[in-house]
Nucleic acid binder design. Sequence first.
DNA 1: TAAAAATACTCCATAGGTATTTTAT
DNA 2: ATAAAATACCTATGGAGTATTTTTA
Lengths: 307, 307
Amino acid sequence: MDLRQLRYFLAVAEAGHITRAAEQLGMQQPPLSQQIKALETELGCVLFQRHPKGVRLTDAGTMFQAEAQRLLADFAAMQERMAALAEGKRGLLAVGFTSSAAAHAFTPETLRACRSRYPGIQLVVSENNAADITEAVAASRLHCGFLRVPVSRPHGVVLETLLQEPAVVALPRDHALARTRGGVALADLQGQALILVRRPGAPGLYANLLALCAQQQVQVSVAAEVDRMMTNLNLVAAGVGISVVPASMRGAHPHAIVYRPLAPEVVLDAPLTLAWRQADSTGPTATFVALVRKLAAAQGRRQAACA
Amino acid sequence: MDLRQLRYFLAVAEAGHITRAAEQLGMQQPPLSQQIKALETELGCVLFQRHPKGVRLTDAGTMFQAEAQRLLADFAAMQERMAALAEGKRGLLAVGFTSSAAAHAFTPETLRACRSRYPGIQLVVSENNAADITEAVAASRLHCGFLRVPVSRPHGVVLETLLQEPAVVALPRDHALARTRGGVALADLQGQALILVRRPGAPGLYANLLALCAQQQVQVSVAAEVDRMMTNLNLVAAGVGISVVPASMRGAHPHAIVYRPLAPEVVLDAPLTLAWRQADSTGPTATFVALVRKLAAAQGRRQAACA
DNA sequence: TAAAAATACTCCATAGGTATTTTAT
DNA sequence: ATAAAATACCTATGGAGTATTTTTA
């Protein structure tokens, strides 16, 4: 038995004539008769009473009509669901983000936009460190990841910078460097106690900072190592030491922390980065990536307009 | 898309290897690869990630696996239902009977036996006169009919005598013929007031009786014409006249009515007859006819043993 | 007897087989 | 380097077309 035979049967049942049904199906009468006969043989029961001016459903035929209609409708519904999935309008989408990526207003805005624009896409969000997120994307446990400065790029994973953003120095209010004008130079960090995010899983921002210091032979000490960037700021506010964070995190502890830009010659960026598997060029992931790109471009234009 | 392709897909998804799945399907790897590719092309999404030691389901593939499993299970369930229908173990069965056929214990016994033996067969019973029942069977509004002496046999309808039974004369207790010994002769009916069942729809028993009387030039009058044979007996009990009924109806009004056999030379039988469409040689109707025949044979043997 | 369906046959599209190449780790 | 999938090409089953016969009210 075959879906084609079900369609043939339904056409005949509806038309009441094999000849007329064959016309509607765009075929000839004999092959249609043969298929109906084959169907009857396979089912082991006669589906139509043959009359000189057409055919009429038997009891078995009436029952089979209901069954065939249901099955073909289910099949069509399945095809629609798969088409929606292929178009990227439906399906599960697991998105991960680091705490620092979540701190940027862009991330929750994007998730909200996806929810409202594509209600068929079921978003599952989770938080983790940058290393685990890129690894999970590579292993298909996540479809997309938002992070800051990546530490590695696993094979098959695309890392795309969404928003460029400078790093700023976070200082306790009464710190000496808080009075700096024109940006903090790398030499100013000499002898400072830094608060960093612990490796493994640390964002590249801290690796880059330490590399710069080593390169310029600036000696720094590590006052504390924490798991999330937000904890950094809590410790800065408590006066444990100083730290470096993306500019968009300047909203935290406004009374206890002073944020100062780095000097122009210190290139230390903290971009917002999107990770996804290169193979996901269709489906919900592709839809989401396209949406994120569009929103990021709009955000970029807005920032440019402000500056 | 095709059910075959769904089966192929599920085999590959389960095996995790196209080659291994091809073995299990009893085919070669290349055609299986082709079918999988064709499926992916039609769906518009990649179902498997190809690895050097096999394939793994993508997100779309996982979704499609669930869909395909459901569809194939539904399809198999449909096939089972249709097979049960073809075997006659399932389906609707409309059975009609006349009031006189229902009066015979055999009819309700048979229906009860069918219900317990074939719970999948949905019995729908109705009562009507003999003419309407045979007509309804011919027109497929009924699958089977129980009646007494048929009046006509529409084309395509089989009438089978289940139980042979003599007619008896029903007399008011104080009627002169009630004292007859050795059976009522046709001549005894001369001048009697008979209660008959009204035509159209009357059982052939009364047509046969009147024909016999006309043939033997016995004059009878018609005291009343009713719709159901049971009403006959009510009027006999009331002393309106005399009547002729099947022997098995002797249980009615035992205090008011005396039943006397007809003389041996008067051949007036009131068999129990089953009607069904000749075309219904499979399905529930055939099952039911076979069951009825078996029960009738058993009943016949029991009667023979009693005599 | 006049429709519609069934039968007999012919053809071709495509599923499936065989041989080989490509791919990915 | 190796195992597995993809590609190329060939074969053959069976679905569909054409012509004709049979059926049934």
